[in-house]
């Protein structure tokens, strides 16, 4: 194995393209190093993107924020503007691993690793985040939800990698929230999770919503029926019950060491309900 730390995206694209099978991007390494050690992957070349200009920056763009692919969870969590704009995405990113893992992990690594249980992904999907992909043919934008295609597999073409994520601008009376279920209080992988982003009108009625679920299907699920259950309501009990139902309906989880089908199907709805209420309170400015 070789290690390289290019300083430009062009260099990185070249390296990737000229080693189509054997090269891997190294961001925080918190998935990659674990997989290396376990012998799950054996890349020939590691391309460390942390020294590429601009990839460690968070910059304002059209009212939203562009987050560089090498920004760590801790850096994102310390960014006041990001917290204020998309509290759900930031809280999801901050749930990844321990303080130590936070010092390294990235939301792009979380996305590209394509684990069904990745914490930041449902929150980003609910937020309508856009990934900027660069490759031999230049750059393109892609909805975050289209990146993971199966557990451990993403849709990036050979030679491509992600340089940043755009968290879009946010209108008034809107906010988001993310919750996951784990058996302990920390240091676990989500058994199931829900990200909710919603917008209210002046009277407190939900006029737009996005609900995304994690760990209940091979990839993150954006559940339209769940959003529909919220739209036009004040998130009253009936609407929340419909939301939970829609989440359960959409879920297609598996039994594994972390949870059962029955448990995941039920609890994912509970999480969606609770996340919706937190997002609502945030949208109303009641909490941050």
């Amino acid at each position: 194995m070789r290690y390289t730390a290019p300083s430009t995206t062009a260099e990185a694209v070249n390296l990737l393209a000229s080693n189509p099978d054997g090269a891997r991007i190294l961001a925080g390494g918190t998935d990659l190093l674990v997989q290396l050690r376990a012998g799950i992957i054996a890349p020939e070349l590691l391309i460390d993107i942390k020294h590429i200009n601009g990839l460690r920056d968070i910059v304002a763009e059209d009212g939203g924020l562009r987050i560089g692919a090498a920004v760590s969870g801790a850096e994102l969590g310390e960014h006041e503007a990001a917290r204020a704009l998309w509290p759900g995405v930031v809280e999801a990113a901050e749930l990844i691993g321990s303080t130590q893992v936070q010092g390294r992990c990235t939301i792009v690594g979380n996305l590209c690793n394509a684990s069904p249980a990745a914490d930041s992904v449902p929150a980003m999907v609910a937020a309508g985040a856009i990934a900027r992909v660069i490759g031999p043919n230049g750059s393109r934008d892609c909805a975050v939800g289209e990146i993971p295609v199966a557990p451990g597999r993403n849709s990036l073409a050979p030679g491509e990698f992600i340089t940043s994520i755009l968290l879009p601008a946010r209108v008034e009376h809107a906010s988001d929230a993310y919750l996951r279920f784990i058996p302990r209080t920390e240091m676990d992988i989500a058994v199931c999770s829900a990200g909710v982003s919603l917008k209210l009108d002046k009277s407190g009625i939900c006029v737009a919503a996005r609900v995304a679920l994690g760990a209940v299907a091979p990839t993150v699920l954006l559940v339209e029926e769940a959003a529909d259950a919220l739209i036009g309501t004040t998130l009253d009990e009936a609407a929340l019950a419909d939301l939970a139902n829609a989440c359960a309906q959409a879920s297609a989880p598996i039994d594994d060491k972390r949870g059962t089908v029955e448990f995941r199907t039920e609890v994912v709805g509970v999480l969606a309900k609770r996340a919706a209420l937190i997002a609502k309170a945030r949208a109303l400015g009641e909490t941050s």
């Binding site: 190294l26 390494g29 190093l33 460390d48 801790a74 130590q100």
Partner: peptide, 20 residues
């Protein structure tokens, strides 16, 4: 646990080559 440029990290999750 060690700190790397002031950040707390797991030394087992950092490649030695990365600390140049």
């Amino acid at each position: 646990s060690v700190t790397l440029d002031g950040r707390l990290v797991c030394a087992c999750l950092v490649l030695a080559a990365e600390v140049e």
